[in-house]
Amino acid sequence: MALVLKLFFFSLLLPLSYCADPIAHYCAQNYTSNQTQININQVISDLTTSASVGGFAVTSSGNGNDTIYGLAQCRGDVSASDCSACLSSAAKQFPVACPKQADARLWYDYCFMRYDTNNFVGQSDTGFVTILYNVQNATDPDAFDKAVRKLVKKANSDAVSAGSGSLGREKTNFTEYINIYALAQCTRDLQPLDCAQCLWSTLQYFPIYCSHRRGCRVLYTSCMVRYEIYPFYFPLDGNAKISGVDKYTKAILHPH
């Protein structure tokens, strides 16, 4: 019973996949063409259906300048039902977050969806980054940062290894009472080398935004990394110590 109650508490700490508001979004390219809107609607519908089955999908709709390309991916550790719920939330949110925008991207905790007039499939995109970092510092911060760097690098390596599905998960015992959890993921259209380069490039922001922080995540369009001191990926770690819910600050950058 104690284990069941602990897992239930952890589930309350995890973000809801069907939350109406994304954790990040990007919008660009105004349009007025009715055909573009029709193609966007078709792409969103196709992605929601196809990615709900396998956790990943790419598609396109239209011809010539009106063509819309799309991609959707769920986090590799979430269930099919959570994946489907997250994608449905994204589909409903696009008209609100990016009205009449032909380049639109939505990040949720459990999924990511985008569409664009350019065929981006298979190309690494690090031109937009969102960073979420915990406002609280870790105890023994220098040792904590060293442990985080080592753990995140292991998660990055896992994500580019054969058979990983572009997902890496790692855990380390920092102290008797504190575990650190890390997750890394690329969109599955990337080749392993492009995935590796994307993930390693996220580390440039760690000294600036994540140093000494109890949790941090860096979100690119093509990849993401995250670490926390509570279990946030599945399967949940039932032996973890509960630390409470922390607060985060967001930074949005346009490096290119």
Rank of each mutant, 00 (worst) to 15 (best):
E228P: 01
L106Q: 01
F128M: 06
V129D: 01
K153I: 13
Y133T: 15
H25Y: 11
A162M: 09
S201D: 15
S164E: 02
L193E: 08
T126C: 05
F232C: 00
T48S: 11
L219Q: 02
K241F: 10
F120D: 00
Q123E: 09
S81E: 11
V218G: 02
A138Q: 02
T32E: 08
A91W: 00
V53T: 15
S33R: 08
F206N: 07
Y26Q: 05
P231V: 05
S60K: 09
L236E: 06
D82V: 07
R114C: 09
S33P: 00
S124E: 03
Q73V: 04
S84H: 05
N41A: 10
H254M: 11
V225G: 00
S161L: 06
I38Q: 10
T221V: 13
V245D: 12
Y209Q: 01
V225A: 04
Q73W: 01
V160Q: 02
T139G: 12
F112W: 06
Y181I: 13
A182G: 13
V96M: 05
K6R: 14
P231K: 01
R169Q: 10
V53A: 14
Q29N: 06
R75V: 02
D77I: 07
D237F: 05
I242T: 07
A240R: 08
V218S: 03
F10Q: 11
A90H: 03
D66N: 14
V245H: 12
T172C: 04
V43T: 05
R226H: 14
Q37G: 10
V78L: 07
I40V: 05
Y69L: 11
G244R: 02
N30Y: 04
Q191A: 10
H212E: 08
Y209H: 09
C195P: 00
Y110K: 11
S166K: 12
K153T: 12
C86Q: 00
